[in-house]
Structures are given as structure tokens and as C-alpha cells.
Design a binder for these strands. Structure first.
Length: 185
DNA sequence: GTCCTGATCCTCT
DNA sequence: GAGGATCAGGACG
């Protein structure tokens, strides 16, 4: 992988514009990453804050692996693990700009509006067909899910993170400025 | 468009 | 037993 994942906050910005691809039995889906959030073990909003557990163990492994979690009783969200093993860092992928497999994404999402396929962390996981099966996979060509170099963002906007209740002061959300596929708010 | 709520279940307290 | 890195649908205007 050519993307620098040594630090979550920097990696969250480096990952903007990268291409995420999933080759599934139903076909290929892919998209450019347009919105991310950084999480680290010193951060009370992070799953890794209270130390390693069975659920978050992937976050404490090497960088470049996929951490998937299940939340709110019905949704999956995906992270790219960053940092050194033992550090417990990750970057939440919050939105994609769809590239390949638009019909398949629409089927999985049961939505036809292009802008409603991948503009949210649980939406993109559903559109890409990602779930707990994919937790812990390396994001390279040895897996069905991987990252490639994509586009260079023209501008990056920094804000506070969405939907958290602790450490809300951190400005650790990043998105490609003016991209129409960024989640709301 | 905005606001509010129900859905639904795993994880940790 | 509570709460969560969310989303969709309905009420209202």
C-alpha cells in the first residue's frame, strides 16, 4: 500500500481520494473515499480507549487492516487500522463517491438515488457489501477488499466528528471540500 | 426543508 | 441494564 498510515489523524487526510474496492461474488463495487474520521486510544470517543477487547482487537494490530464493527442493533461501519501494533488507532470511512458497481449498490441499498448510496458510514458498508466476514482482512490485493491510489483532493475541510458524545472538541473529521457525496450536517 | 422517534442487538458496566 | 463512531420514515410547515 502506498498510503501513509503511520498516524491516524494524518492518515485520515491521506485516505481522502483513495479508492476502496470490493470484489464480491455478486460483482465489483468501488468508490473514492471522500469523508473520514480519526480515532486513537487516547481519545475517549474511540472503541480502543478502554484497552483491547475481543471486539476491537483488530485496531490493536498492524496498520492497513479492516476493522468492522456492528452498532445500533443493525448497522456495520468500517475502519482502516493505522499506527503501530498495540496503539489502537483507526480511521472511520464515513462516505464514498461511487465509481463501479452502481447497480449492485442500488440493489443492496434498495435506493436508486446515486447520492443516497454511500453518503454515511453504515450506508457505504451496506452498498459495498461489507460486514463482519471482512473484519480483520488486510486491505491489499491478497483480499477481496483493498485500497488503491485514486484522486488528489483539491481541498480538505476539517470539522468535529459526527455522532460522538465524548472528546467532541477534537477536529478529527475530514472531507473533500464541496464533494456531493459527503454525509450531511 | 427540519425535527423526532423507532428499529434492534452486541458489548461493556 | 444501558447505551451506541446510524438510518429511515413520518409529522409538520
Amino acid at each position: 500500500m502506498e498510503i501513509d498510515l503511520s498516524n491516524a489523524v494524518e492518515a485520515a487526510q491521506n485516505l481522502l481520494g483513495a479508492k476502496l474496492v470490493h470484489d464480491s461474488p455478486e460483482g465489483r463495487t468501488s468508490g473514492y473515499i471522500v469523508e473520514t474520521e480519526a480515532y486513537s486510544a487516547e481519545d475517549a470517543a474511540s472503541h480502543s480507549y478502554r484497552g483491547q477487547t475481543e471486539r476491537n482487537a483488530v485496531m490493536f494490530g498492524p496498520a492497513g487492516y479492516l476493522y468492522v464493527y456492528f452498532t445500533y442493533g443493525m448497522h456495520y461501519c468500517i475502519n482502516v487500522v493505522t499506527g503501530q501494533p498495540g496503539h489502537g488507532q483507526g480511521v472511520l470511512i464515513r462516505a464514498l463517491e461511487p465509481i463501479e458497481g452502481l447497480d449492485l449498490m442500488s440493489q443492496r441499498r434498495r435506493r436508486s438515488d446515486l447520492r443516497d448510496l454511500t453518503n454515511g458510514p453504515a450506508k457505504l458498508a451496506q452498498a459495498m457489501g461489507l460486514n463482519m466476514q471482512h473484519k480483520g482482512l488486510p486491505l491489499d490485493r491478497t483480499s477481496a477488499v483493498w485500497l488503491e491510489p485514486g484522486i488528489s483532493p483539491k481541498g480538505i475541510t476539517t470539522t468535529s466528528r459526527i455522532g460522538i458524545t465524548r472528546d467532541t472538541h477534537r477536529q478529527w473529521r475530514f472531507y473533500i471540500t464541496d464533494n456531493p457525496y459527503v454525509s450531511k450536517r
